[in-house]
């Protein structure tokens, strides 16, 4: 059983600059930041290393950090330029009994993250959900489509600057 701090040290030694930092001042759980294009190899290492054995992905969540430049349009809706979107990975090891949280941040204008679907099949639907809700593109995902919203829906609803469409297929949306 290892603490997130120890796991961070192991990863730092193995991957160097691709591990960008650890936030420990958060009140509950430390978060390790990883380079978005290295997340797959980091996860493969975490799964296969004999001391770590992270055999299951508990959850994968997209987040809109809303840390860009904010302006308002004429209807009073926020428009956010720049800043980042993030993906949080919650890993769990059934064999070793430890947990860790990873995070990748990508630019809002070009949100591309390496998919971990080939590491844990559990990531498949979670990644599709993050794509659906935030427009985060998971590279090398075998079947990246919308999952909860209709296939022809415009926009990504959980972004903080999302604006409700007026009509969807001829139906008024805020009915």
């Amino acid at each position: 059983m290892k603490t997130p701090g120890e796991i961070f040290e192991i990863l730092k030694e193995k991957f160097g600059d691709k591990i960008t930092g650890i936030e420990t001042e958060l009140p509950v759980e430390p978060v390790i930041s990883v380079d978005p294009l290295a997340i797959k190899e980091v996860c493969e290492f975490l799964r296969d290393n004999d001391d770590l054995r992270f055999d299951t992905l508990m959850s994968l969540a997209g987040v809109d950090d809303a840390n860009g430049e904010k302006t308002k349009d004429e209807d009073g809706y926020d428009i956010i330029k720049g800043g980042t979107l993030s993906v949080y990975y919650h890993l769990d090891s059934i064999q070793k009994g430890h947990k860790v949280t990873l995070k990748v941040s990508v630019e809002r204008e070009k949100p591309e993250v390496e998919s971990v679907e080939s590491v844990w099949r559990a990531a498949d639907w979670h990644e599709r959900e993050a794509f659906d809700m935030y427009g985060i593109v998971f590279l090398n995902h075998p079947d990246l489509r919308r999952i909860l919203m209709p296939e022809d829906w415009q926009g990504h609803p959980l972004r903080k600057d999302y604006k409700n469409p007026e009509y969807y297929q001829g139906m008024k949306v805020p009915y």
Partner: peptide, 29 residues
């Protein structure tokens, strides 16, 4: 301010809540 992933054993399996707080009265995520 902070994040938490908390899980409980629901009748159907692991129910996890991932909450991000930005220090206000509304959850950020």
């Amino acid at each position: 301010k902070g994040t938490i992933y908390s899980r409980t054993e629901n009748p159907k399996g692991e129910l996890g809540y991932f909450i991000i707080s930005d220090g206000s009265v509304n959850p950020f995520r």
